[in-house]
C-alpha cells in the first residue's frame, strides 16, 4: 500500500515537472512559490511550489473605476498549483507532503487577488523512535516509521503585489485544508496556513487577451 502511494506521488511529480520543463505552448511560464507553511498554525514548516496559468481572461475597467483603482484590469485566471513541503510537530511527528490543485483566481480592479482551489494531495508522516515486537519476541527499532495518507484538499487565500528582487512579485497568504482519508478510520481535516512569495518569471511576450 505504502509503495503504491510513493509511486503515485513520484508519477504526479514527474508529470508536472515534464509539463513545465517542456514549456508547453499553451501554458504560460510557471511561477515559483516559496512559503513558510504552518500546520494547525503552530507546527512550522516550509513549502515550495509552482503555479502554472492555464487560462486567463482580462477585462478592462470602466473610466470611473480606473480613477479609483491602481489598475485598470481585472483578471479571471485558472491555475494549476503544485507544491511539495513539510512541517514538523515538534513533539511527535513530521510530515512531507505534496498536493496539486486547480485554482480559480480573481484579481479585482483595485488590484487585490483572491483565490480558491480544490485538488488532491498525499502526505507521509515520520514518527520518532518506533519499536515493534517481532514474532520471535524480540524488540526491534523501525527504520523511517510513519504512514502515507491521501485525500482531497481545498484552499483559499489572497495575494498582494510587491516589487522586490527588481521585479513585480507577489506576497501571499493561504489557508489549505487537506482531508486525510482513512486516518485512524476517519476523515481527518488539517488546517494549514502558508505565508510566502510568488516569483513571476520573465516573459518574452505579454499576450493578454483583452475584452470589453
Amino acid at each position: 500500500m505504502e509503495k503504491n502511494h510513493a509511486i503515485l506521488t513520484l508519477y504526479i511529480c514527474l508529470i508536472l515537472w515534464s509539463i513545465q520543463s517542456k514549456g508547453q505552448p499553451n501554458l504560460k511560464p510557471a511561477r515559483i512559490k516559496l512559503s513558510y507553511y504552518a500546520n494547525m498554525f503552530i507546527n512550522p514548516g516550509l513549502s515550495v511550489g509552482t503555479e502554472i496559468i492555464l487560462t486567463e481572461k482580462t477585462t478592462k475597467a470602466s473610466k470611473k473605476t480606473v480613477l479609483r483603482s491602481q489598475n485598470n484590469l481585472s483578471r479571471n485566471t485558472w491555475l494549476l498549483n503544485g507544491q511539495v513541503g513539510g512541517y514538523t510537530h515538534l513533539y511527535n511527528h513530521s510530515v512531507l507532503f505534496t498536493n496539486y490543485e486547480i485554482r480559480y483566481s480573481r484579481t479585482t480592479k483595485r488590484g487585490r487577488k483572491f483565490f480558491g482551489g480544490i485538488g488532491l494531495g498525499i502526505e507521509r508522516s515520520f514518527l520518532p523512535e518506533t519499536y515493534e515486537v517481532t514474532e520471535n519476541g524480540t524488540v526491534e527499532k523501525i527504520t523511517l516509521p510513519g504512514h502515507f495518507y491521501a485525500g482531497p484538499t481545498i484552499s483559499m487565500g489572497m495575494h498582494v503585489k510587491r516589487r522586490f528582487f527588481a521585479a513585480q512579485n507577489e506576497l501571499f497568504m493561504e489557508v489549505q485544508v487537506p482531508f486525510l482519508i482513512d486516518y485512524n478510520n476517519t476523515l481527518l481535516p488539517k488546517i494549514n496556513v502558508a505565508f510566502g512569495m510568488l516569483i513571476n518569471q520573465k516573459q518574452k511576450k505579454q499576450s493578454n487577451e483583452i475584452t470589453k
Binding site: 514548516g45 516550509l46 511539495v84 513541503g85 513539510g86 512541517y87 515538534l90 511527528h93 513530521s94 512531507l96
Partner: peptide, 14 residues
C-alpha cells in the same frame, strides 16, 4: 526542491 527537503529533514531529529 532538493534544498527544501534538506532543510526539512533537519526537523526530523525530534
Amino acid at each position: 526542491v532538493f534544498l527544501t527537503i534538506l532543510v526539512l529533514s533537519s526537523f526530523f531529529i525530534i
